[in-house]
Simulated scan of single mutants.
Amino acid sequence: MTQTTATYLTHHFLIAMPHMADPRFVHSLIYLCEHSEEGAMGIVINQLSGLNLSDIIEQAAPDVDVPPSVGLRPVYNGGPVQTERGFVLHSGHTRWEASLDLGALHLTTSRDILVDMAHGAGPDESLVALGYAGWEAGQLDQELGDNCWLSVPAEHHILFQVPSEQRLAAAAQSLGIDLNLLTSQAGHA
């Protein structure tokens, strides 16, 4: 009898397959911050919320003046869990109050990073999102087995340099796949 070892996909992109049944994730690209036997957590990185950074800073730190060059940066719908909470996925060091070192990147949830961003002292590369995507133990593994998602190692330039509307196609292309050529019918071989 062979024993299988679980493969975890932390620091990977999840690409929603065309037959994705959950309308919250249709055409989504998710950066997986954590994936373990206990579950998974990620940030949707290609769905704009319609808000910008000024809107968020105005709520979190109303006394801070936000220059237009910072304030017009988009905010993303990070996922359906805790949609009122802000998450900043960023490169660089963790010098803010509530930062989690993800290894390749950092995830910060404290107000102080927003204030620093408004003052031009924030991280060089960042993505601000409201909410996150979360899976209970085994849930993402089941969805992967059901062919709901493709996974590919995350690429820094796709996350921070590719325009949001092109990120999903760019991640798929890194696998050599054109999503427009995939069927929306699911199946198993």
Rank of each mutant, 00 (worst) to 15 (best):
4 T>Y: 08
4 T>E: 11
7 T>E: 01
10 T>M: 05
10 T>R: 12
17 M>V: 08
19 H>C: 00
22 D>Y: 01
23 P>H: 07
23 P>M: 02
26 V>H: 13
31 Y>M: 05
31 Y>T: 05
32 L>G: 00
35 H>I: 05
38 E>P: 00
40 A>V: 04
40 A>Q: 02
45 I>F: 01
49 S>Y: 07
52 N>W: 09
57 I>A: 10
58 E>D: 13
60 A>I: 15
60 A>V: 15
60 A>Y: 15
62 P>R: 01
62 P>E: 06
63 D>T: 11
65 D>M: 11
65 D>Q: 13
67 P>M: 04
68 P>Q: 08
69 S>Q: 11
70 V>E: 00
70 V>H: 05
73 R>A: 07
75 V>E: 01
76 Y>F: 15
76 Y>W: 02
77 N>F: 12
77 N>Q: 14
79 G>Y: 07
80 P>N: 04
80 P>Q: 10
81 V>L: 07
84 E>R: 01
85 R>A: 12
93 H>V: 14
94 T>P: 12
95 R>A: 11
96 W>T: 03
100 L>Q: 12
101 D>E: 13
102 L>N: 09
105 L>E: 08
111 R>Y: 14
112 D>M: 02
112 D>I: 08
115 V>F: 00
116 D>K: 06
118 A>N: 02
119 H>Q: 14
124 D>S: 15
125 E>L: 15
126 S>Q: 15
127 L>N: 09
131 G>K: 03
131 G>W: 01
132 Y>E: 01
133 A>K: 07
134 G>I: 10
137 A>S: 10
146 D>E: 05
147 N>R: 08
147 N>T: 09
148 C>F: 15
148 C>R: 14
150 L>G: 07
150 L>H: 01
151 S>A: 14
153 P>Y: 13
154 A>L: 05
154 A>W: 02
154 A>G: 03
155 E>D: 12
155 E>S: 11
157 H>P: 00
164 S>K: 01
165 E>T: 12
165 E>P: 02
166 Q>Y: 13
166 Q>D: 15
168 L>K: 00
168 L>F: 04
168 L>E: 05
169 A>M: 05
170 A>F: 02
174 S>A: 14
174 S>N: 04
176 G>I: 13
177 I>K: 03
177 I>P: 07
180 N>M: 11
181 L>M: 05
181 L>P: 02
183 T>S: 13
184 S>T: 13
186 A>F: 06
187 G>V: 07
187 G>R: 06
